[in-house]
Simulated scan of single mutants.
Amino acid sequence: MKRLTTTLATIFIALLATAQTTIDKDERKKALEHLKKSQSDLIDLVNDLNAEQINFKQGEDSWSIAECMEHIAISEKNLIGMVQMSLKEESDPSKRGEVAMTDDQIIGLITSREQKVKTRKEFEPTNSFGDFDGTVRAFKERRESNIKFVKSTDADLRNHYMQFPFGLIDTYQGILFMSGHTQRHTDQIREIMNNDDFPG
């Protein structure tokens, strides 16, 4: 009996060692809800804006709504690209202790408008989608693709990592960061629209 118990325990441990770790149901739901809400909040806000409104700038060094929207669409591709690149590496549970923040802290950090950060060159708007409608369409397509990925993936998102200036995060948090980034710039668009000189 003792030998059987030992054998079963050995098999169980081996199965655990070879099984792929994936996000649980609550984590998947949280990410999907955040992605869908940040998308709908943005699209609802920019719907029906005219050309004068989307090109209005608060100052010479400020972005217009059109530029904010393009930056969001570019980031949607670049950030998920960073997630996908990380997933090509071997998973490493030993790094879990190095993760800099909790999920909620990641969302709080990226959505806060208190600290302004200059974006990297590859994230800068350059009128790459032709016009505002093209930009909105590109964002929607990329976000829908990313939602589909989160719905279906069985990747080990908790044991693959991305290095950011503020520290190490896991790839699940990278997805939350991407969604929070949309929320951050949606709030920036609201600030533009609340400017006293914003066209009526």
Rank of each mutant, 00 (worst) to 15 (best):
H71V: 07
E76Y: 00
K121Q: 14
Q58V: 08
M193V: 00
T6E: 15
A17I: 13
R96L: 12
K25E: 15
T7W: 08
G200P: 02
T10M: 13
E60V: 11
G97S: 15
R28I: 09
D44K: 10
C68Y: 12
I147W: 01
V83H: 05
Q58D: 08
E144A: 10
H34M: 12
I147S: 05
M162P: 02
D44R: 07
E70K: 04
K116V: 12
S40F: 00
V99F: 09
T135S: 04
A155T: 04
A17T: 14
K148W: 02
R3W: 09
T111Y: 02
S145L: 05
H71W: 04
K25L: 10
A66F: 03
E124H: 06
L35N: 03
V99Q: 10
N159M: 02
S86T: 05
G167S: 02
Q105F: 06
R142I: 09
S94Q: 08
S145T: 09
S152A: 14
D26N: 13
E67D: 06
F56Q: 01
T119Y: 05
I72T: 08
W63D: 08
T7S: 10
G200H: 09
F129Q: 04
R120F: 10
I80M: 15
N127G: 15
N146Q: 06
I192E: 00
H34E: 11
G81T: 10
L16D: 02
F12I: 14
R120N: 11
T126P: 00
T182E: 07
S38E: 12
K140L: 09
N50Y: 00
E124N: 12
T22P: 01
R190G: 01
K57Q: 12
I74W: 06
I74R: 07
D24L: 07
F149A: 09
Q105Y: 03
I80V: 12
F12S: 15
N127H: 14
